[in-house]
Design a protein around this nucleic acid. Structure first.
Lengths: 180, 180
DNA sequence: CACTCCAGTTCATTCATTGAACCTACTGTG
DNA sequence: CACAGTAGGTTCAATGAATGAACTGGAGTG
């Protein structure tokens, strides 16, 4: 977003937040991090964004403390959400809810459940079984009623993301995953 | 945001939402609409954004059904949030909450109350007096503990916005408002 | 050592944003 | 009626950011 720091809205936390996550692509990167993306290549493949832009966004997210960059992680670099990044979950949910409400007539594209009791989460993230606000790592994501098959189901990266899984859990990369 | 419509994420409501409100400035315009801005000039003065950009953003927000454009309104044009626009309130709140949490150590920049019983609203928009989720038009906004005076308090436009008021209520423009 | 991944960088082209100036219609005011 | 002021824009040159394709360089493998 790069709002000028002379911006009159020193007193608006919305403006402040947008300086961190308001740029093009940034929130989509964060979303994919929630969904389990950790590697540069995962983000690049899923988002189809120019690698130079991805580099720059990852850099600034790390700098802002939303992601950590860990290059000690086996073969390659891993980007992971920090607690500050995980705290963006309500933002991601709110944006999704609005899109579901106004652009997905047959229902939410994705559904979220409490992994423990399988209860669906409502708009505020509360489990309809136990009434709790479910913490992010205990949420599983699956297709919702509004999901529209689009042919990416069997693509190794997007495909993985379309099967039920727990948030924040990294993609499992079996050795033969590029075998066509 | 202008994500290409060929975007693989047909199935992500977050991406869909960002296509509508993800561009630079757009959410700040929406925020000011919640805070009572209705006139082209109000937005321009508060946001200090190039008028050409404002024109284009207002146009697309109207096209998306987030705002209405009414040029029958006395002397001038009025932009108002539609119900679809008002439904963005949770998005605005979520973004503000995050900014307050991580960039405003002395507390929220703005506080919200239930106009009827004066109860403060919590993070989810629930009144701490009566427990209800307060509908947007019944919310009043005032300075929070983290508010930092910045000299715009007596500027006619920004100043108005800094005194407690009900959301969505238009600025009252008294005839002598430009009298220095 | 050749080969493949992975995580970037580089670069020319295209596109969007910026800020300042200009334009047009309407509203009082003397 | 002339004139200033206000409102809501448009136009334009300059700058900056995004795009996509090609390239680089290191680590791990056979």
């Amino acid at each position: 977003m790069t709002l000028p720091s002379t911006y009159a809205d020193r007193n608006c936390s919305l403006a402040r937040t947008l300086e961190v996550v308001g740029e093009r692509w940034t929130l989509l990167i964060v979303r994919d991090a929630f969904f389990g993306a950790r590697r540069f290549g995962d983000f690049a493949a899923r988002l189809k964004i120019p690698r130079a832009v991805l580099t720059s966004r990852l850099k600034s997210l790390v700098q802002e403390g939303v992601l950590t960059r860990d290059d000690e992680a086996g073969a390659g670099v891993e980007y992971r959400l920090t607690p500050k990044g995980v705290a963006l979950w309500p933002v991601v949910r709110a944006l999704m809810n609005w899109g579901d409400e106004f652009y997905s007539p047959s229902g939410a594209k994705r559904a979220f459940r409490h992994d423990r009791d399988g209860g669906l989460l409502d708009r505020e993230g509360r489990c309809q079984e136990c009434g709790q606000v479910v913490p992010v790592p205990a949420i599983t994501i699956e297709r919702g009623p509004g999901y529209e098959p689009d042919g990416t189901e069997h693509d190794p990266v997007s495909g993985t993301i379309n099967t039920p899984r727990r948030l924040l859990e990294p993609f499992v990369r079996s050795e033969g995953r590029k075998a066509s």
